[in-house]
């Protein structure tokens, strides 16, 4: 049985606990074991925290990585932002000078990170380690839904010169494995606006989120699937915030793991979907 250290980050426990529940359910079905990361902290934020103080940000990341390394396990993350932060930190910690500098700090709290583990996005684990066929075997309720896909910017992070579409394509194939139809548009790649919402909310709502929602509405999708809780918050809270500007939308937005759990036949009430601020519970009720 393959085992991973599950890194939940901040947003999933606070804003999207249903994604954690769904992950535990689908890992159980797929015979993947989860190790808890006791004492983990914020990853921290992939851009802002690194901009503010690289050393503090890297120390926090390395400390998180050391928790998984102590258990000899790779980290799996459910968030694009956490992926970029921890993946970048893991790469930086491979440099001798950086590793020495950060480990001197970690030594003060009795920790050390040797750079021996990998940071894996949930999409890579499900697509690469489990495989599409094994996922399809677990689908008890094929989803006859039309779904839009929102990749999220940090999902594109690869080694320089790498194929930035590797993980997004895996993500689409995982949605299709549930029996749902992925409906594409010319706006799939566009950022949801979460990054600029932190500095200019109105701009992010009107120039990123609004055109995406308008296009989804035109296409008549049943919902939009994400692999990042920050994107989820932007889609859900953003729909509510857009009402201030007279734009009313009610498009369900859910995480890939929740979609898989529903397709695997997990009852909606076991997923606490009511934490969502978009009509995900209603979407789940249609699946039955």
């Amino acid at each position: 049985m393959k085992k991973y250290a599950l890194f939940l980050g901040c947003m999933i426990p606070q804003r999207l606990p249903s994604a954690e529940l769904a992950t535990r359910k689908i890992f159980n079905s797929l015979e993947l074991e989860i190790a808890e990361m006791a004492g983990y902290t914020c990853c921290p934020d992939p851009i802002l925290a690194r901009l503010m103080d690289r050393k503090v940000a890297l120390s926090m990341s390395a400390r998180n990585l050391s928790i998984a390394e102590k258990q000899g396990l790779d980290i799996v993350v459910l968030c694009n932002g956490c992926f970029e932060t921890l993946w970048e930190a893991n790469k930086e910690m491979k440099h001798e000078e950086t590793s020495k500098e950060i480990n001197e700090l970690l030594a003060k709290i009795g920790r050390k990170y040797n750079g021996t583990i990998n940071v894996r996005h949930i999409v890579e684990v499900l697509h690469g380690d489990v495989g599409i066929e094994a996922i399809k075997k677990q689908v008890k309720k094929p989803l006859g839904l039309k779904l839009a896909v929102h990749y999220g910017c940090h999902l594109f992070r690869e080694e320089n010169g790498g194929d930035i579409w590797r993980k997004p394509k895996q993500f689409e194939e995982l949605i299709s494995a549930t029996g749902a139809e992925v409906v594409h548009s010319d706006i799939d790649q566009l950022c949801c606006g979460f990054p600029t919402s932190q500095v200019d909310e109105e701009f992010s709502l009107k120039h990123n989120l609004l055109p995406k929602l308008e296009r989804y509405q035109q296409m008549g999708v049943d919902g939009v699937v994400v692999v990042c809780p920050a994107c989820n918050v932007q889609f859900e809270s953003g729909q509510l915030a857009l009402r201030r500007y007279g734009a009313k939308f009610s498009i369900p937005c859910l995480h890939l793991v929740e979609l898989l759990a529903l397709a695997f036949g997990v009852p909606a009430k076991e997923l606490s979907l009511e934490f969502h601020r978009s009509p995900v519970s209603q979407l789940a009720a249609r699946i039955g």
């Binding site: 901009l51 950022c191 990054p195 600029t196 500095v199």
Partner: peptide, 23 residues
């Protein structure tokens, strides 16, 4: 063709040159 329009580049630039997060 690779740009997602996230504008993190603008935030990162303003921080480097002016010490603030302002696109």
């Amino acid at each position: 063709e690779r740009c997602t329009g996230c504008r993190y580049c603008e935030i990162a630039c303003s921080h480097k040159n002016f010490g603030i997060l302002n696109p």
